[in-house]
């Protein structure tokens, strides 16, 4: 009986394990291997000369666009994650406190979750785009109209004008990423809020606690596991951000210095520079690993229950 069960378990797992062996476990070790083998190309069959070392990391760091990719990724992370988490927390607390219109507002706030990143990114590009020349705009775009400005937010160059600055491009990208990241966070936090035991609030009411006190002493501690979860997934997600940038600025991100770490990796793969790509991926992995460990450690100290 025992032996039969043993056999059955592996049969049920076989399809998943075979696929994972080929596309998860093997690549994990192989990629780490590629990182430390200088001059190795997995596309070439045999008779390769390569040596063991950290040359790939040096090459990656010395690659002209690497620093810009790393810089962009870090900026996106430290700007978007705290802002979107804070906004999501405020919106979900506000949503939870109202009765009329709650359902319809909830639906509106969830809407961006189901969008195609490319399609809406192109809409953001259109909203910020300026068409024409500096002296005679064909259109200044809707955002400029609303704020009464004439800023060239993202465009490569208006005829006779200058390129958009890195700052404004980054601003547009961050706005888009925050807009895109909010619904997931609201969904998680609102779900958590709705499952907080009402007795805590009743107790606070009997003690005549103020709204602010109730928020900081009950809501935030009760939500802390979910806030931590949203922060960790948010950090990991933004370190892997790439599609949003492609959606707003198109495929040629290097020429306007808007590429990210994941973009760097994909570019290197396309150039068949597997060593540099692997070094980039390992750096990304290390950042995510260190960050996850750190937040686990903080979480175990700070997160309530």
């Amino acid at each position: 009986m025992e032996a039969k069960h043993q056999w059955k378990g592996w049969i049920f797992l076989a399809p998943a394990l075979i696929l994972m062996a080929v596309f998860t476990f093997y690549p994990f070790f192989k990629t780490i291997g590629i990182t430390f083998l200088n001059g190795y190309n997995p596309l070439k069959a045999t008779n390769q000369t390569f040596e063991f070392g950290i040359q790939n990391f040096i090459d990656a760091f010395n690659y002209p666009k690497f620093t810009s990719c790393l810089y962009n990724t870090i900026i996106v992370t430290i700007v978007t994650v705290p802002i979107s988490t804070m906004l999501a927390l405020l919106i979900s607390v506000a949503l939870n406190s109202i009765r009329p219109l709650q359902k319809i507002l909830q639906t509106i706030f969830f809407l961006p979750y189901v969008t195609n990143t490319i399609a809406i990114g192109m809409v953001f590009a259109v909203m910020f785009s300026v068409i024409g020349t500096p002296s005679r705009f064909t259109t200044v775009g809707v955002i400029n109209t609303i704020f009464g400005t004439k800023i060239n937010w993202i465009n490569i160059s208006m005829i006779g004008g200058s390129n958009a600055s890195h700052f404004t491009r980054m601003f547009v990208l961050c706005v888009y990423i925050i807009w895109n990241a909010l619904p997931f966070k609201i969904m998680i936090l609102l779900g958590a809020l709705q499952s907080v035991n009402k007795q805590y609030y009743d107790a606070a009411k009997i003690d005549c606690a103020t709204k602010a006190k109730t928020f900081w002493r009950i809501t935030v501690p009760m939500l802390s596991p979910m806030i931590a979860y949203v922060l960790i997934t948010g950090f990991i997600g933004s370190f892997k951000e790439y599609t949003a940038s492609v959606a707003v600025f198109g495929n040629d991100l290097n020429s306007i210095d808007m590429n990210t770490m994941v973009g760097f990796i994909y570019n290197q793969i396309a150039l068949a520079e597997f060593g540099r790509a692997a070094a980039g991926a390992l750096i990304l992995f290390a950042i995510i690993l260190v960050f996850t460990m750190f937040s686990r450690w903080v979480g175990s100290k700070k997160v309530h229950y």
């Binding site: 596309f23 998860t24 093997y26 690549p27 994990f28 192989k30 990629t31 780490i32 590629i34 997995p42 990991i236 370190f239 892997k240 994941v262 990796i265 994909y266 793969i269 597997f274 790509a277 692997a278 980039g280 991926a281 390992l282 990304l284 992995f285 995510i288």
Partner: peptide, 9 residues
Amino acid sequence: IPGELFTIT
């Protein structure tokens, strides 16, 4: 593990 690590291989 970020998927990009697998993507290369």
